[in-house]
Design a protein around this nucleic acid. Structure first.
Ligand SMILES: [Zn+2]
Ligand SMILES: [Zn+2]
Ligand SMILES: [Zn+2]
Ligand SMILES: [Zn+2]
Lengths: 142, 142
DNA sequence: GGGCTTATTGATAATGATTGTCAAAAGCGA
DNA sequence: TCGCTTTTGACAATCATTATCAATAAGCCC
């Protein structure tokens, strides 16, 4: 019913996302675009990314800090191993996890189950910041 | 170095969290407390929940909508199957997932890896809302 | 109990990401 | 080009969370 029009803005976002090798936030992508001379608006970047994600042309996930990150999508359902520092992402598939998630849900009578499975860390190119040897166990919130 | 003082506020948050059978947000817990006649401040609820979480006395996770949710914790590392509607949570353990996460991280040279593994759905007591049979695949962002 | 020192509280302002508004600008089919 | 709609983008509005900071109250010693 609703016709989708082609605008240079949408194309700009799509291609900007392609040049990124990792996940980026809407804010960050907007800055990069502006930095490249584009006059695209922030709201438009948000809209374009949201559209790409719901069209399956981009993956999206929440960073541990609560920001929504996006990345050009290859295809199909999969998960990611993401660098906390540079955003680099490695696509990972795990059929075991898929069946596990599905089973644990139905086992407890849950329907319309979705799952969030992500692994965050520091890639080999990024130095992990002041690693407090023992102190915080794992995900102590800032 | 820093002595922790006991206040009725902290105790109020702790016990309020205990009465919840599922995950709740700081905002929501604050409302409940206020509704029960307590004059506790919002910032205090945030602080108390944050402390409980970092002390390991509460579990915390991000809802798909980006809110931070908390729940009285039993003990040890585990994951959850959460009802999108009532917040009911079932603790689930999966050693397979643990080893998988650990391996996939080291396999790609990632260090200080943490993982986010949660399953969201509708529990048997909650009716799934207008299930758009086919329309939206899975997690179309509102 | 009466002070003292200092952690804690809480009303409120500030932050920051995301969304809503709506008039102006731009697709696109005729 | 014309006209109808979709899209844009500057800006305001939300909303959860955090920062401020003066006032309050634990824990403690006398
Ligand atoms: Zn990195
Ligand atoms: Zn999956
Ligand atoms: Zn439920
Ligand atoms: Zn785990």
């Amino acid at each position: 019913m609703v016709m989708q029009r082609n605008t240079w803005q949408r194309e700009a976002v799509r291609s900007a996302l392609d040049t990124q090798m990792g996940f980026v936030s809407a804010q960050s992508l907007h800055s990069k675009l502006r930095g490249s001379g584009s006059h695209i608006g922030l709201a438009t970047v948000y809209r374009a990314l949201g559209d790409l994600a719901s069209e399956g042309q981009a993956d999206s996930l929440q960073s541990p800090e609560g920001e929504n990150l996006y990345r050009a999508c290859s295809r199909g359902h999969h998960h990611h191993l993401i660098c906390r520092s540079c955003g680099l992402a490695v696509e990972i598939e795990a059929d075991d996890v898929e069946v596990w998630a599905k089973r644990v849900a139905s086992l407890h009578g849950f329907t319309q189950a979705e799952h969030v499975v992500d692994v965050f860390g520091y890639c080999s190119s990024c130095v992990a910041p002041s690693a407090e040897s023992a102190a915080n166990p794992v995900s102590a919130r800032k």
